[in-house]
Write a protein that binds this DNA or RNA. Structure first.
Length: 587
RNA sequence: GGACCUGUAGCUUAAUUGGAUAGAGCACCUGACUACGGAUCAGGAGGUUAGGGGUUCGACUCCCUUCAGGUCCA
């Protein structure tokens, strides 16, 4: 709608002899209770016109109708100038732009971006929180890619540390040689089981020590199990063969389990980083920072950075004994990523509990003068809570990812069977359909909410399949495909000289797709796509109910409406793909 | 002690980044050529946008403050 803005600028120039910038014109969709397609907000223009908002609107409106071919009519309500676009313009817009092959495709922008997401710990299976992370990361990566970025999906696996040793130790002590094969358990679940067992046994020991007179704090430190786990970590770091072998074996189990879950979720990675490879990185950066005077040493030899000028605290970056803290290795890993791929931007999809950490991390890299530091971004998202509060793996109060996926598919199945919609489907087709719908419901449910908002999930309240949901959109797509398969080939021979109100809305909604796509990328928000596609699907359903398509006698109009259906279906499909959701031909 | 995030209808949420009477979905109520697919559509009811102040022609949006929930820093 650039020509409206341009026309308005010209109008202000001609009428009030003032030059304005494009950004000073507020353009919005006309609310549906008023007549018109686009609206110019005229309040700010009264400064130039020195007239009432109504009068200003009327003058500009008249100018636009007189001077711009595509503007057919106008009306003014308070400070709002509502403009109607001509049918011939809409016909042209639809035919030459919206319905073309390349609509909504962005050319390469020559930029490279890394999206790091998932980043699991190898001591337990994935839960609902990880699911949100995975879906977000995957979707944002797809959205950036659709905007012309060259995207590298990366996964930084936390495969070492005390928590891993806890699972290992518990398995060694209480596992009796269990394996995924011997138990039939998925590898990550088997390992997670021993993580929970560790915690249970550890708590027992703590209680014993407490009854023997120790304080809570002492007991936690002195319990034999924790000491053994710490010892095991040291052995791991020293490269003890037995420990390393056990570590490798159990990690192999876990990775097989993760792979299965990733596949079910439909997420993937191009590059894996492992903390066992990167945990020693970053020390050279500490040296660099000391030389540059960005860091300073305290008496105990520990290294710090003073961020009080930035409103933060002093931050420890290396312990006195020379060992790393979290941020040490993150500094090193950031450098490694840049060295590996030379990316222009780098996203970290990590929960908001680490807001402070990333603020500090990026600040440090900036202070070190890293040219690429300005391209770093923490995509922070809210925690997923249960009605009972936070999920805790150790205490078993988690919604397991695999269980959740299975349940969703199962619900999709029973729901579909109830509706009696699968006549003529083969068993494979049914299976695929249930998977699509179940995952569609789950993914849409998680992605339609703005990332930074916290999410409350009630396992007792099933995710809807009606209304503002994935299946609603999938259904709309199937319905469109049904029309098209009955219509045969698309015939693009049409000229429409009078659109209905709903057709106009639908054309304008389709026209907004590229805008929605770039807004989603700019804000790293799949929710923008999700809500846009919903609006579109809703509009199509309205159109579908109001107007005949295949029954039409008028070939021109019929061809147009079929084409409109084709285009809407294709935008729905493209948009859902960006959310990682497949849409069926029939359902 | 300091810092950050969130708070919109019973529930889940949107609001083009400061614009019209705050828009949807679920649940509730009423209706839709016995169908180009009813997992749909049309309508009703439901709001002091957590509370209070301020800036503005105009505030869910910006500023100050209080409250509630969550998180982080040693």
């Amino acid at each position: 709608m650039d020509f409206i803005i341009e026309g308005t600028l010209n109008a202000v120039k001609a009428l009030y002899n003032t030059d304005l910038k494009e950004t000073e014109i507020g353009l919005q969709e006309t609310r549906k209770e008023f007549e018109g397609d686009v609206t110019v907000v005229t309040f700010p223009l009264t400064r130039m016109s020195k007239k009432s908002p109504e009068q200003t609107g009327a003058e500009i409106g008249q100018y636009l109708v007189d001077n711009i071919e595509h503007v057919s009519n106008f009306n003014v309500i308070k400070g709002f100038l509502n403009l109607s676009l001509s049918d011939s313009y809409l016909n042209h817009l639809y035919k030459e732009k919206i319905s073309q092959e390349g609509f909504g495709l962005f050319p390469s922008n020559g930029k490279k971006v890394m999206v790091e997401y998932s980043s699991p710990n190898t001591n337990k299976p994935l839960h609902l929180g990880h699911v949100r992370n995975n879906l977000l990361g995957y979707s944002v990566a797809e959205i950036l890619s659709a905007n012309g970025y060259d995207v590298i999906k990366a996964n930084l696996v936390n495969d070492r540390g005390i928590h891993i040793c806890k699972s290992m130790l518990a398995w060694k002590k209480f596992g009796a040689g269990e394996t995924p094969q011997s138990t039939g358990l998925k590898g990550d679940h088997l390992v997670g089981k021993y993580y929970v067992i560790f915690d249970k046994e550890y708590k027992k020991q703590i209680d014993e020590l407490k009854t023997a007179g120790q304080s809570e704090e002492e007991a936690k430190k002195n319990a034999p199990l924790i000491k053994e786990a710490q010892q095991m970590l040291q052995q791991w770091e020293a490269g003890n063969e037995e420990v390393i072998n056990l570590w490798k074996t159990m990690n192999t189990w876990v990775y097989a389990g993760f792979e299965e879950t990733y596949q079910k979720l439909g997420v993937e990675f191009k590059k894996y980083y492992y903390e066992s490879d990167t945990y020693l990185l970053g020390k050279d950066i500490i040296e660099e920072g000391l030389e540059k005077g960005v860091f300073f040493k305290k008496e105990d030899n520990s290294v710090w950075i003073d961020l009080t000028a930035e409103g933060l605290d002093e931050k420890l970056v290396l312990r006195g004994d020379g060992t790393s803290v979290y941020i040490t290795q993150d500094l090193g890993t950031a450098q490694l990523k840049y060295n590996d791929f030379g990316v222009d931007e780098s996203l970290y999809v990590v929960g908001n509990e680490q807001d402070y950490h990333f603020k500090v991390l990026f600040l440090i890299l900036n202070k070190l003068g890293k040219s690429w530091a300005s391209g770093l971004y923490h995509l922070s998202y809210g925690m997923v809570d249960l009605p009972s509060g936070k999920m805790k793996s150790r205490e078993g109060t988690v919604v397991d990812a695999d269980d959740l996926i299975d349940e969703m598919v199962e619900t999709a199945k029973s729901r579909t069977e109830e509706l009696g919609k699968v006549e003529g489907f083969s068993d494979d087709e049914k299976k695929e359909l249930y998977r699509m719908i179940g995952l569609g419901a789950l993914k849409y449910f998680l992605l339609k909410v703005e990332p930074k908002k916290r999410l409350l999930f009630d396992p007792n309240e099933s995710i809807d399949f009606q209304g503002h949901t994935g299946p609603f959109i999938q259904y709309t797509h199937a319905r469109i495909r049904s029309i098209i398969s009955k219509a045969g080939v698309e015939n693009r021979d049409f000229t429409v000289d009078a659109f209905t109100a709903t057709e106009r809305e639908l054309i304008l909604a389709l026209n907004k797709y590229p805008e929605a796509l770039s807004a989603a990328a700019k804000e790293y928000s799949p929710a923008q796509i999700a809500n846009y596609i919903y609006e579109l699907a809703k509009l199509y359903n309205k159109f579908y109910h109001e107007e005949p398509i295949l029954k039409l006698e008028d070939d021109q109009l019929k061809n147009f409406r079929i084409s409109l259906s084709v285009t809407t279906g294709s935008v729905i499909k493209k948009g859902m793909k960006l959310l990682g959701i497949d849409v069926p031909e029939r359902m």
